[in-house]
């Protein structure tokens, strides 16, 4: 479904990611662990195609197609969708107006709005004055309306209180593994995703298939996500670096 091949990324002239090889098979949800500043967000932003993340080497393949040089909207058209960490304040752009344009025909928008408790935000400018949890819900609402087949989720649990986290977690689970309403856009196996998590909390809500650890701009190792999380919890990320050195 998604394949990164020797991907190297520069931000502001500085190398952030080096030779990333990563793949997410159709119907899989893979998880990306890593300490702050490891380059996790940069990786997701590059996959979506945001400028400012310069690909200096390597390729991004999506559904077998080389999308390395495609603009964002064409990637979105092909089924990629992102839930960002720090989306910009969209002064003057009302949530409702955007949803009206982006929502897929098969989506019951009213139901989604209710489910995410977002009805009082529809007339508001997107992200302007939203709290951390509200931003996440708004992002999730937009993403659900867009109905992508591949979800790029950047720390969906960060800055969210306990009540919101279960709401968000369950929604993400439903989007990734739930009923498929939009026939033709998705595969039988369900949707796929690449989820960044710092704390691993989101794993209480979703079934993850494979985990990767990203440190210092490099993939350190991959494996069963729960095993990796346990390792990280007991030994910390420093161990990953040491382990990598030992391996080489």
């Amino acid at each position: 479904m998604l394949e990164l091949e020797n991907l190297s990324i520069e931000v502001g002239g500085k190398q952030i990611l080096t030779n990333i090889n990563l793949s997410v098979e159709s119907g899989y949800t893979n998880v990306l662990f890593g300490p702050n500043g490891a380059g996790k967000s940069a990786l997701l932003m590059s996959i979506m195609g945001f400028s400012g993340y310069k690909i200096t080497n390597g390729k991004i393949y999506f559904k077998g197609e080389d999308i390395t040089d495609l603009p964002l909207n064409e990637r979105a058209e092909r089924g990629l969708g992102i839930m960002g960490q720090r989306p910009p304040n969209m002064v003057g752009v009302k949530l409702k107006d955007l949803l009206e344009i982006t929502a897929e025909e098969c989506i019951d928008l009213d139901e989604l709005v209710e489910e995410l408790n977002m009805s009082s935000f529809l007339e508001r400018d997107i992200n302007v004055g939203f709290s951390g949890g509200e931003i996440k819900r708004s992002e999730l609402l937009q993403l659900a309306a867009q109905a992508p087949s591949f979800y790029l989720l950047d720390e969906p649990e960060s800055g969210v209180d306990l009540v919101n986290i279960s709401q968000i977690g369950m929604m993400i689970n439903k989007l990734l593994h739930g009923d498929i309403k939009c026939a033709g856009r998705r595969r039988k196996e369900g949707n796929s995703g690449l989820v960044i998590t710092h704390t691993g909390q989101i794993l209480d809500y979703i079934e993850a298939d494979k985990g990767y650890i990203l440190c210092n701009g490099q993939i350190m190792c991959s494996g069963n996500p729960r095993d990796l999380l346990n390792e990280i919890k007991t030994k910390g990320y420093q161990e990953c670096v040491t382990c990598k050195i030992r391996q080489s």
Binding site: F50, S51, N73, A76, G81, P87, L98
Partner: peptide, 26 residues
């Protein structure tokens, strides 16, 4: 702001649609 245009493009809007929407809001 480019980040605003790209935010909307990531939702599937073309650059023209995104700029139009931002201008209308402005």
């Amino acid at each position: 702001a480019k980040e605003q245009v790209e935010y909307l493009m990531a939702r599937g809007l073309t650059e023209e649609q995104a700029v139009g929407m931002i201008i209308r809001g402005f």
